[in-house]
């Protein structure tokens, strides 16, 4: 499926997908979106890269590393990074849940703060739930990409 059409299309749409995914993630608290949707969409972008350019492209083309083509993906460097991503994401989600305990609040209590007079945005809401949601995002991206690249390499 690594056709010219596929590659050209991928070149154009992958950045757009990534930007949309990130905006969905950040807008999630007030508009449709959120960590889960943003995460799945990000994964889709990666999947398209995989389909168009092959599994090793990320490392060889973007990170500029030498990759042994026959190497098993489960021990591949990028997969290790994915694994770490979902582990850290899960840790972040748990940690953001544990943080309120320091202030004598129950587990997973969330709060938010309105910041006024911020340049460009004028007023900006900072929700503590964003940290938790970022954990969700990381777990989804890390977990799905791990599955995708390991299964895809089969």
């Amino acid at each position: 499926m690594t056709t010219v059409i596929m590659r050209t299309t991928a070149r154009a749409i992958v950045p757009i997908i990534l930007v949309v995914a990130i905006s969905l993630f950040f807008d999630g608290h007030n508009l449709p979106g959120g960590g889960f949707i943003g995460g799945v969409l990000t994964t889709t972008a990666f999947a398209i890269v995989y389909m168009g350019f092959g599994l090793d492209f990320l490392e060889r083309g973007i990170l500029g590393r030498d990759v042994d083509p026959g190497k098993e993906p489960s021990r591949d460097r990028v997969v290790l990074a994915y694994r770490r991503l979902f582990a850290y994401g899960f840790a972040l989600a748990v940690a953001s849940g544990l943080a309120p305990l320091l202030f004598g609040k129950p587990f997973l209590t969330q709060t938010f703060e309105m910041l006024e007079g911020v340049p460009i945005y004028d007023h900006l809401e900072v929700a503590s739930a964003l940290a938790f949601d970022f954990g969700v995002y990381c777990v989804v991206v890390g977990g799905l990409l791990t599955i995708l690249s390991v299964v895809g390499a089969e």
Partner: peptide
């Protein structure tokens, strides 16, 4: 309480 207008997301994360 949740500081968000998206009730689905507030329910999920909060």
């Amino acid at each position: 309480r949740g500081g968000g207008a998206n009730i689905v997301n507030v329910t999920l994360v909060d």
